[in-house]
């Protein structure tokens, strides 16, 4: 009798735990889904590819949420996993890159809003190699060199190298002056 009651109590505990986990995962998704999707979109410009990669990562995250939710920052784990899924899908496409049409040879003007800043950012991203894109995408989130290195599985020195390359490319693309080159948005 006592053991049956204990079993019932275990069952209800497990159910309660499962409901709590589900609730926690839903909250996580509500707060972070758009942000993670944007992180991926800033790298591949192909919404379907980005959504596929994110869905794959989130299915695993949901399945292992009991472990993942205990991480210091679960969003880092999802970012890392989704990024690797994206790279795998990208590899399967044999590196046929997608470039957004709206960004091709546009005249870059002073961004006045966050949306316009995003457009300028995408223009810059489309001209970078994949790892540098990922570093820049995490720079937008305000992550430190160490945090970027942890999420992308790179050395801190590599992140610094990529950051320096990104800044150099930005200057090249948007250099000021009257030499006919593009102007830095100002």
């Amino acid at each position: 009798m006592t053991s049956a009651r204990a079993l019932r109590s275990d069952d209800s505990g497990a159910q309660r735990r499962s409901v709590e986990l589900d609730g926690s995962f839903v909250r996580f998704l509500r707060d972070n889904y758009s942000k993670i999707l944007k992180f991926l979109l800033r790298q591949c410009f192909d919404p379907h590819l980005a959504e596929d990669a994110l869905r794959e990562a989130l299915i695993v995250a949901m399945d292992k949420w009991e472990i993942v939710s205990k991480h210091e920052k679960p969003v880092y784990w999802v970012n890392k996993t989704a990024w690797h899924k994206l790279l795998t899908l990208h590899d399967r496409q044999k590196w046929k890159d997608t470039v957004p049409l709206e960004n091709v040879e546009d005249e870059v003007v002073e961004p006045a809003s966050s949306h316009e800043a995003e457009m300028v950012l995408r223009h810059l991203l489309s001209r970078l190699p994949l790892q540098q894109r990922a570093v820049l995408a995490l720079m937008v989130e305000g992550d430190s060199d160490e945090q970027i290195a942890l999420q992308l599985g790179l050395a801190v020195t590599t992140v610094r190298t990529h950051k320096s390359e990104v800044r150099k490319k930005y200057r090249e693309l948007f250099q000021s002056g009257s030499d006919g080159g593009r102007r830095e948005p100002r």
């Binding site: 695993v60 472990i67 210091e72 920052k73």
Partner: peptide, 9 residues
């Protein structure tokens, strides 16, 4: 799935 469950931090 090919994932690493370790906490990146």
């Amino acid at each position: 799935s090919d994932v690493d469950l370790y906490d990146p931090l």
